[in-house]
Nucleic acid binder design. Structure first.
Lengths: 330, 330
DNA sequence: CATTCTTACGTACTGCGTAAGAATG
DNA sequence: CATTCTTACGCAGTACGTAAGAATG
């Protein structure tokens, strides 16, 4: 009597505000959607929508049913996910990462995921940590990999590697600023001799280090703030100033003397990375991906070896939302 | 992709042990059931049944899915019940009562239910309280009306009227046993002069009074025990002994001097009745029926007015499990 | 060899799409 | 009058039933 299709129709009408939009979303026609709702209404003997106006407005009973339908659909999805063989689990998986991950081991992670879940459509998104956290909180993303800055109790946190950062600039700038006989370890205050490039407090690393700077009495220096790691790197390579950058990732550039490390006293603390997903999803899928992340996490970058071209981190083409399942017009 | 029909197939196969039985239950053919399962299996990419033997055995994944399917079906039912207009809510409602209720206000209760839920198929069952409790605990009955003897925390208890009982026997027996000038109030011990008919401890009233007898030092007297109220009444009317019987119900027989009350000191306590249903069902339906019960509860009996014919309490014919919905062979 | 599930095949019916209709702002 | 939902109607594809096949105990 009652079917998932009917509930999906209800859900998407409520979500998108019109029968037409829902029909489009469900790859079917307004007519079909209308009838699914009518089936529900006659089946339950209630009015779900108030048709006195042109716009679709839920009745009170309709609102109640919507909540229940949403729950039922959600549970169905969870059942599908829990019980599906990995080889056939076809769904979107929205994976959020920060730039550093995008530049380094994101391809490896996606490979790993696709090896285990070949039908999964992985949609990576590169954003600042703060944005990723928001997206996770509002449930518009499934799993994120970011610096482990905030802890939300409703998240399951899988610790990954720690990222070792160091202050870096061009050798020329170092010599020009510190002279030919620089101290073995520069006190933090000594950094004020440089133009310091930092990351804003929208970035997890920026937040951690901003806090640390304050705790360690680092003076607020003449600094530029950027939210883009690649831009930051480019500015640094051009000799504009000094920045904290991930050591392992930039090892090739250090080797080729395009950059050099300026050791400080105290040295920068490491940034712990973690994979996070919402606890209430409690899905094997998320847990598995987190495990893959723990396994493949590696902030060394093959990209860097090829020269100063650091234009990685491009998003793969977003997969289409599945072939039309209905009998759509050709 | 995944449908309720498929899950129902799975559920009933597990429940009944074979594809054929499930098909029968679902008003369809083995073939159809088999295919519904196959759809699930290919859809999920898993094996649900182990076909190496002839008998249908669930695989591990199958067991997991069964649990999830059961939950989903249960939730669907709850949605249907919650949101359905009362006029269209068609389901079975198994109502358990004791004999006393069956003899008195059960018809009034059923009328009330049917007035509010015209499509509901009410299936009354008359059993001893202990059986009713069991049935409620094992969830094979929806709501029971019994003496309020046991309290299970998982039940929602709606108190109803209290039943006033008194010791009764034929006037002839009273005179023969107590003489022409009986005491106004017979001490409990005085009952040992009679053959005492009691109800066994499978009956709620029997349990309450058994307890009370022990507390009030009533001697274990020469007694007969019966679990059938009508039989008890018949034996009493034939002058065999003395019994506790509901005063209001038997008022007509008392008026016509077929029975008389033997007042005791102390008098029998009242028996509180209650409607009980499982808390986890939390259904409007059960709550409504309990409210109807509270409203219509009335232990006076129109049956008794017609003479000694007390052959009420017959179960109405059990309704058929709905007309075939599928396309069954004619 | 009886029972239980699967497979094959033709069919019936549900539910879909097209297109026209009604109602609203 | 454009937009939004409903209705009518014919069609298509799914899912069903029959009946035969395979496998098990």
């Amino acid at each position: 009597m009652i079917t998932f299709k009917q509930m999906e129709a209800l859900f998407w009408i409520a979500e998108l505000g019109s029968f037409a939009a829902a029909a489009n979303k469900l790859n079917t026609t307004q007519s079909a959607v209308s009838k699914r709702i009518q089936e529900l209404e006659t089946g339950f003997g209630i009015a779900i929508f108030d048709r006195s106006r042109r716009t679709a407005r839920l009745t009170e009973k309709g609102e109640e049913l919507l909540l229940l339908a949403r729950d039922l659909l959600e549970r169905r999805d969870r059942v599908v996910e829990r019980v599906s063989a990995k080889e056939v689990l076809a769904r979107r998986f929205r994976l959020g990462v920060t730039e550093l991950t995008a530049l380094t081991w994101l391809p490896a992670l996606i490979d790993e995921i696709r090896a285990h879940y070949p039908r999964l459509i992985v949609e990576p998104e590169v954003e600042l940590s703060s944005v990723l956290f928001e997206r996770l909180a509002e449930d518009s993303i499934d799993l994120i990999v970011t610096p482990d800055v905030f802890h939300d109790a409703r998240c399951i946190v899988t610790p990954l590697k720690r990222v070792e950062n160091a202050w870096m600039c061009t050798p020329a700038l170092a010599t020009a600023t510190l002279g030919p006989h620089p101290p073995r370890r520069l006190p933090l205050a000594g950094l004020s001799a440089f133009t310091v490039l930092t990351q804003g407090n929208l970035s997890g690393t920026g937040v951690v280090y901003g806090r640390w700077f304050r705790q360690n009495g680092m003076p607020t220096v003449h600094s530029l703030s950027s939210n883009n790691l690649v831009a930051q790197l480019g500015l640094t390579l051009s000799g504009l100033g000094i920045t904290y950058l991930p050591v392992h990732t930039l090892r090739p550039l250090l080797r080729r003397n395009l950059l050099q490390i300026v050791e400080t006293d105290p040295p920068l603390p490491d940034i712990p990375y973690a994979a996070l997903y919402r606890a209430e999803h409690a899905s094997t899928l998320c847990a598995d991906v987190a495990a893959f992340a723990a396994q493949r996490c590696d902030f060394t970058s093959p990209l860097m070896s090829a020269g100063t071209q650091t234009g990685g981190g491009e998003k793969p083409g977003r997969a289409l939302p599945g072939p039309a399942r209905g009998r759509r017009a050709p």
